[in-house]
Structures are given as C-alpha cells and as structure tokens.
Design a protein around this nucleic acid. Structure first.
Lengths: 151, 151
DNA sequence: CTTGACCTTCCCATCTTTGGAAACCCTAGA
DNA sequence: TCTAGGGTTTCCAAAGATGGGAAGGTCAAG
C-alpha cells in the first residue's frame, strides 16, 4: 500500500503522514526500491489512531504519549486518564475564554442599532469610551498562555 | 513617547507594535533623527483599540476593518454589528467543536478505571476497537476549516 | 566617559496544515 | 516500445500571533 492508499484508508492526508513521520510521531515507513513509502495494515491502524486523537484535539506531543501507552501492554489506565482529563481541562479553559469574548460581544451587539447611523457601542467599547456602564471590566485580558489547545 | 512607553500605556508589547506596523495594521510611526519610533497620545489610543479588539479575539483582518470603521465618521453601525456577529458565530462554532471533543473525552474518561490496570476505553476508542457502544459516531471529523477564530 | 537601559533590524522558533515546484516512478493504452 | 497521466519523492514557503535573541546604535544619569 502506498501513501495515497494509506491516506484514503486512514483519513490522514499524505502531506500529514509525511509530516508525522518527519517529526517522529510515527516511525519511518519502509520503502520500495524506487523510494515509495509502503504501508501495512498495521501502519494504517496507527494512522487511524492518530487521526482519532487529532479529531479529539490532542496535540502531537500528547499523541506521542498516547501512542506509547497504546503500545505498552502493561500501561496503567490512570496514565491515559490523566492525559485525557488534562486535555479536557484545557478544552474547558479555552471554552470559557471564548464564552467570555462571545458574551461581551453579544451584549455590545444587542445594544447596537445596526442601522445606517454611525453610533455603535461596539466601536465605542473598543475605543475605550467611558459611557457609563462598562461591559468589559477588564480582568479577562491576561488570561495567560493557555494555548495548548487548538490549532 | 518611544515604543516602550507606548507599549506600557497601551498594553501591546513592543514586539507586537512593530509587527502590527510591519503588516500594515497600523501606520508607520514617525521617527526621531536617530531612528527611534515616536508615538503620540492618538497613536496610543489606536493601540488600545487594537488591544481591546485582540482581547475579544478579532483577527488582524477583522481589526483592520474595525479600525477603518472607527475612523469613518460616516460609518453605518450595521457594518460594525455584522463583523461582531460574524465573529460571535465563529466563536460559537469553535466552542461547539471544543464541547464535542470535551464531551466525548469526559464520557470515555468516566468509564476508565484510572488505576494500575491497562484496560482503558480511551485508548480503546482511539484504537478503533468496536466494543459495543460507540462514543464517537464520527460525524464531527470533517468540521471544516472554521479556524478563523483563535490563535 | 562609562554604564545600563533602551532602541533598531534581522533571524529563528512555535504549531499544524496546506500549497507548490521540480523531478522521478508506474501503469495503461496506442 | 513509447508516451501520457497520475502518483510519488524532496524541498521550500506560507499562514496566524507571539516570543526570544543577537548585534549594534542611542540616550540619560553619574
């Protein structure tokens, strides 16, 4: 099976398969005499594992850990659970961050006429116009570097 | 006011101020004879605008639009509202995506012993083991390229 | 004048994914 | 057998926003 077939069978693009090999997430594929990569059913299994983990938002680093645990017959499920729960926490942190942005914007937009007139609380807020009630008190600016999640 | 002071006054790092100038989000700053960038109170006002928009998750492209509208005294608030609501929609799409990942993972984790034993539904799901009830039916893989939101 | 803090530009790294170019390989049809 | 097309290889670059650092110039205080 060459890389195109492996890609179709796993749902991982050929580009990404090469990339994953390059960065060491997956081992180097064996080659034909002419240099074409060759994949086995087992390789496709691994690629599917990677795609599912990717779909769940795991980073390459986390996938490396997960792949190692997957291959380790003597693994402790607590190790897997720890990674998963850490990721869930990161997802929830990110969601809260987005929620806060969305809430602020929705509030501002709800007070915006949205017609031909130029007055707009959204622009006003961004410009820092103190017009009485403030929507963003501020404390969500330095939310830290919780960017482990999401591309 | 030099770039360090403008940075402190606006909350935008000096690095980012230079970057925003380079990509054309903000106009080139005037310079002293020795080449130091010089900022006015007005410039700081603009930088604050940019920081607030950034904190709300707007992309550079969107900030460009917003800055243009801000400067346009004859703007229609509907234009601003449209951008804001589009961004809210993107935020909500992204949140739903994350929620789906988190839900799947939480479900899997709740069924994981999390002890020293190797059995683990999380690894099982990633490996594609069909063990009766499936948690991820699948239809959230090709969620599209909704990556306009978030860094 | 020296020192330390600041500024300048330039390059690199992050992280995942996509795109392209140039060259090579394989297979089917003429 | 030759050729056309599609698949494959590698390498380079881009994207988004931000951080880090090096090498060298500048400024203000002592």
């Amino acid at each position: 099976m060459n890389i195109g077939e492996a890609s179709a069978a796993s749902g991982v693009s050929a580009k990404m398969i090469r990339y994953y090999e390059q960065i060491g997430l997956i081992g180097p594929a064996s080659r034909t005499m002419s240099g074409y990569r060759v994949y086995s059913g087992n390789d496709v299994h691994t690629l599917r594992f990677v795609r599912r983990a990717r779909d769940l938002g795991f980073s390459v680093a986390q996938m490396t850990e997960l792949l190692t645990l997957w291959r380790d017959r003597g693994r402790a499920s607590s190790d897997v659970k720890r990674i998963a729960e850490g990721h869930v926490a990161a997802l929830e942190r990110k969601m809260m961050e987005l929620q806060q942005m969305a809430d602020t914007l929705k509030h501002l937009a709800s007070n915006c006429h949205g017609d031909g007139r130029p007055d707009c609380p959204i622009i006003g807020e961004l410009a820092g116009e103190d017009c009485g009630k403030h929507v963003t008190p501020g404390p969500h600016a330095h939310l830290g570097k919780g960017f482990e999640v999401l591309r």
